[in-house]
Computed example of a mutant assay.
Amino acid sequence: MRSPTLHDVARSAGVSYSTADRVLNGRGGVAEKSALRVRHAIEALGYVRDIHAANLSRRRSYRFRFFLPRGDHGFFSVLRETLEREAGARAAERLDVTCRDVPALDAKALAEELSRIEAGDCDCAAVVGADSPYLTAAIARLRSIGVPVVTLVSDTADEVRSLYVGINNRMAGRTAGRLMRMAHRARAGRILIVLGSLSARDHRDRLEGAREIMQAPGSKLDLLPPIEVRDRPETMRERLGEALRQDSGITGLYSIGAGNRALVGLFEGLEGPRPFAVLHELTPLSRAALEGDLIDAVIDQKPAEEIARALDAMRAIADGRPPPPTDIVPTIYLKDNLPGAGRGGNLPGTGRGAICPAPAGRRLGQAT
């Protein structure tokens, strides 16, 4: 059975197609009696507007802006590449996507970038959240001028942002804690947690989730004070290196954020057994470390799915429709279940070489 069309609505209401179209699009110029008949016909027939077809007929483009952290973080390089690929694949949907680099874990700098957006500049913006009054105020200002904001990876300002797209970071932290307990099999252990910054909600939520499991009754794991490295490899090298030199009894390490190039380098130079190690995000670096037995597990938030869901949600918000589900269940990768293993071993979408971030302000998949 076919779906009712606007022609069916017009026929049922006893008005012309153009009159039904004016009522549907709120353009006015229709007598209230006729408008009421059109609305009743829409409800009686169960007519649902085809937003995609309407946008094509009006040749509407969706203007989306993404603001992603730069720095030594392979995950955001993967995220940029995925965004470029997905935007290009959706050219028929008339997506005009721009991606700008912002400093990692610098909410004030991100807020300054958002302050440059004016009403009508774009249909929706996507940012990686961080808890900061500067960022909350910037998102609130955008909302007040009709520019909705979606948060990715890490949530923030949930009272003013429109939607969060990503994994449950507390659940991810609990997963890491469970892996640590399984690795120690009720043995005593000393666990060191390394994070970027407690100002990042995803880092803080992962830390709290890991603590919930590793400090639960029956656990024999001793949690050392966490160290912050600001997602910088040089800081990771200095602070983690010092921790490993000072405490040879560390049996487990959970790295919540980035800077892991230095972590892998430190593990390569260790004499004797290394700690059981859990990292986040499957990147060329973490994949090679898994394959080389330098780390043990990676919790990945599936960037391809994250970008696809973000774009779907941003379109829905721009169209005034309820957004689709945006929760993502992370994947646990071990050396034995890496994607593409035995078929060249490439991380899907990354190619064989190093991943280069898109230049600041680069437009991705521009509509034609």
Rank of each mutant, 00 (worst) to 15 (best):
P325K: 01
L6W: 06
M214L: 14
M171N: 10
I355H: 02
I328E: 06
L290C: 06
N25F: 09
F276Q: 00
G249V: 01
T331I: 07
A172R: 04
S61I: 09
D319A: 05
A367N: 09
E32Y: 05
P303T: 11
C124E: 09
A316W: 15
L294A: 07
A308V: 02
G292W: 09
L6H: 02
H40W: 11
S199W: 06
R161D: 01
N260H: 04
K33F: 08
A119H: 06
A313C: 12
A104H: 13
G166M: 01
E305A: 08
H52N: 08
G249I: 00
T82L: 09
E43T: 15
G342C: 04
P226D: 09
L221C: 13
I42N: 08
G272D: 14
L36D: 15
G26C: 06
L290T: 00
L311A: 02
D96G: 11
H280K: 15
V298Y: 03
C124K: 12
P233V: 01
G353M: 07
D72L: 04
A111L: 05
S3G: 10
R287Q: 13
G28I: 10
V102A: 03
D319P: 00
V97Q: 03
A157P: 00
L198M: 13
M214I: 07
S197P: 00
I51K: 12
P275H: 13
Q215W: 06
V150G: 03
T326P: 04
G14I: 04
A119D: 02
D312H: 10
A35V: 11
L244Q: 01
D131A: 08
V23L: 00
A125S: 08
V9H: 07
R80Y: 12
A176V: 03
R190K: 15
A125R: 06
M182P: 01
T156D: 05
I193P: 00
V38P: 07
H203A: 12
E291F: 05
L195T: 06
E228G: 05
D202L: 05
L364T: 04
A140C: 04
G272W: 15
R232Q: 15
S197M: 00
L244P: 03
L110G: 06
A210W: 00
D327F: 11
A258F: 11
F76T: 10
K335V: 12
D50Q: 07
A297C: 13
I193E: 02
E242S: 12
A54P: 05
Q246I: 10
S57I: 14
D296F: 02
N337P: 03
P357I: 09
S18T: 14
A125H: 04
M182F: 10
A31H: 13
V127K: 03
P4M: 11
T331E: 13
H203Y: 09
V102G: 04
T251K: 01
V229E: 13
S154K: 07
N260V: 00
